[in-house]
């Protein structure tokens, strides 16, 4: 039962954590959610037909639940932030700041997308095939390419806009 999952685990773990990180924007939380996703997968009976699509769907749902709960438990957020700082000691403060700023921009750019476009884009970036993206999002297989082309265009434009704002901001300083 767990053997097929073991193989899939080796293949998708990094992509899954990255996918979740782009939803919750916290690598440690992303890891925890990925772990939960696999625990659920191991309990799933029977094994889903399309395991990878299944995994990313469950992970996406967990991330959404997580975001809702986080709003209700603001006092926990402080804990998380302290922990996250601890885990990033390797990076110098400047470098860390730069990464954080970049992540904020990417996050804003992603939030400019519709949920469906964003989902398809993140799934594609995680290495899922068009068929798997279709299975995970409910898009028809023929619509995946169109959705992705729109999502990519919009992401690039939104990021460009954010970067432009920042540059003019720097110039004023």
């Amino acid at each position: 039962m767990s053997e097929p999952w073991a193989t899939i685990y080796g293949q998708v773990w990094d992509d899954l954590v990255r996918f979740l990180d782009r939803k919750v924007w916290d690598p440690e939380r992303a890891r925890d959610l990925a772990q939960e996703t696999f625990v659920r997968a191991l309990q799933a009976d029977p094994m889903p037909d399309d395991p990878r699509a299944w995994l990313f769907t469950v992970a996406g749902n967990l991330a959404r639940d997580e975001a809702r709960m986080a709003i209700r438990r603001r006092e926990k957020l402080k804990l998380i932030r302290v922990d996250a700082e601890d885990s990033d000691l390797v990076a110098g403060p400047d470098e860390e700041l730069e990464v954080s700023e970049r992540r904020v921009k990417v996050r804003q750019a992603l939030e400019a997308l519709s949920e469906r476009d964003r989902e398809a884009l993140l799934l594609c970036d995680a290495g899922l095939s068009y068929a798997e993206i279709a299975a995970a999002t409910g898009l028809s297989p023929g619509a995946v390419g169109t959705t992705l082309s729109r999502a990519r265009r919009k992401l690039a434009a939104a990021y460009e806009a954010a970067a432009g704002d920042e540059e003019s901001g720097v110039a004023h300083r």
Binding site: V17, D21, R22, P27, R31, V106, A109
Partner: peptide, 13 residues
Amino acid sequence: ARSVLASADRALP
């Protein structure tokens, strides 16, 4: 789009 997404990458746990 790919490089924008990749620029948000951090060291994974």
